[in-house]
């Protein structure tokens, strides 16, 4: 089987989510990549070094600069004329593009795969991860999004793919990128961090969230996450949200501070290796999944902890 993997990049380097997706694709067959963007020569060169990669298709054109689905989907649909499977990581970019590709080539997408059971069979979470479905498709081509925490990362070096330019399919002129408001942070990225400190509604305000969670995270070299309640209340930005409808994370250590442990939150972090919970309610559901729990008032516990680690 010939697979085509969407390379997630920031214009300069290949994002980690790509590496896990390559691992999933390699279970199906030959791995080819598509790098779409503007001025992405370096990205393509880097992508060609990923272990196990064959051809790297590069579509370098202004129309792909911001990965608008209206422009990118026709490009991939065309490449799917000679590929059997399209795989994208379950990032917001992957989720935006893949179903549009699926519709263009009349394939029912399988979202968020956790494992490859065979050439037409996959497992995926449903109901916020409270059930795992094994699905089999009768489509002759595959469109898959990949839950990146479920697959090991392919080695970023050691491959020797060949880079090949593909003709651009043009600007669909349906949509236009206007602006991005991206948080610049020196902290590790949430989805690839080894340690995460997350804060919940109990933090009470944006000021307290930053005053308590940030120093602990910085001391541990951790990324910062949040519950939906904390994001809705404006204590933390939207891209911090961990959960069923936010980011899915699986770090070595996840520290939940003042988070109750609603199923929608657990859906995003229960595959973490070690879960630490700090909550003043000893019956909080988070303690049912926590490896290490501390019952206490976060306003005294967290500063003390930050001091001592």
């Amino acid at each position: 089987m010939k697979t085509l993997v969407w390379v997630e990049h920031d214009g300069g380097s290949v994002k980690d989510a790509t590496l896990a997706t390559v691992t999933a694709a390699a279970k199906l067959g030959e791995v080819h990549l598509i790098v779409a963007g503007q001025g992405v020569g370096d990205v393509a060169q880097a992508a060609a070094k990923i272990a196990g990669v064959g051809k790297v298709h590069v579509a370098d054109d202004a129309a792909y600069a911001n990965a608008l689905a209206e422009n990118v989907a026709p490009l991939i649909a065309e490449l799917m004329g000679h590929h059997d499977a399209f795989l994208a990581p379950s990032t917001t970019t992957g989720k935006n593009i893949a179903p549009r590709v699926a519709a263009l080539i009349d394939v029912m997408q399988i979202s968020d795969i956790l494992s490859v059971e065979g050439p037409d069979s996959f497992t995926r979470p449903i109901y916020a991860g409270n059930a795992i479905a094994t699905v089999k498709t009768r489509d002759t081509k595959l469109v898959l999004t990949v839950r990146t925490t479920a697959f090991e990362k392919a080695a970023a070096e050691g491959g020797s793919g060949t880079v090949e330019a593909v003709a651009a399919t043009g600007d669909a002129a349906k949509s236009r990128f206007v602006a991005a408001e991206k948080a610049e942070s020196a902290r590790p990225e949430l989805t690839s961090a080894k340690i995460i400190v997350s804060g919940g509604r109990a933090l009470g305000s944006e000021e307290q969230f930053h005053a308590l969670i940030d120093p602990l995270a910085d001391k541990l070299g951790a990324a910062v996450g949040a519950s939906r309640a904390a994001v809705d209340a404006g204590y933390a930005p939207n891209d911090y949200q961990v959960g069923q409808t936010g980011k899915i994370v699986a770090p070595e250590v996840y520290v939940a501070v003042g988070i109750s442990g609603a199923i929608q939150h657990l859906a995003g972090m229960k595959d973490s290796k070690v879960i630490v919970a700090i909550n003043k309610d000893e019956d909080a559901p988070i303690f049912q999944v926590a490896d290490i729990g501390l019952v206490g008032d976060l306003f005294t516990v967290v500063p003390e902890l930050t001091d001592k680690v």
């Binding site: 394939v107 029912m108 399988i110 069979s121 979470p125 449903i126 991860g129 409270n130 059930a131 795992i132 479905a133 094994t134 699905v135 089999k136 498709t137 009768r138 489509d139 229960k270 879960i275 303690f287 049912q288 999944v289 926590a290 490896d291 290490i292 729990g293």
Partner: peptide, 16 residues
């Protein structure tokens, strides 16, 4: 196009 061949409970975490 898809058949759900099996639905299972996810692995359970033990409280620590």
């Amino acid at each position: 196009r898809l058949t759900i061949t099996h639905v299972a409970e996810p692995g359970k975490r033990q409280a620590g």
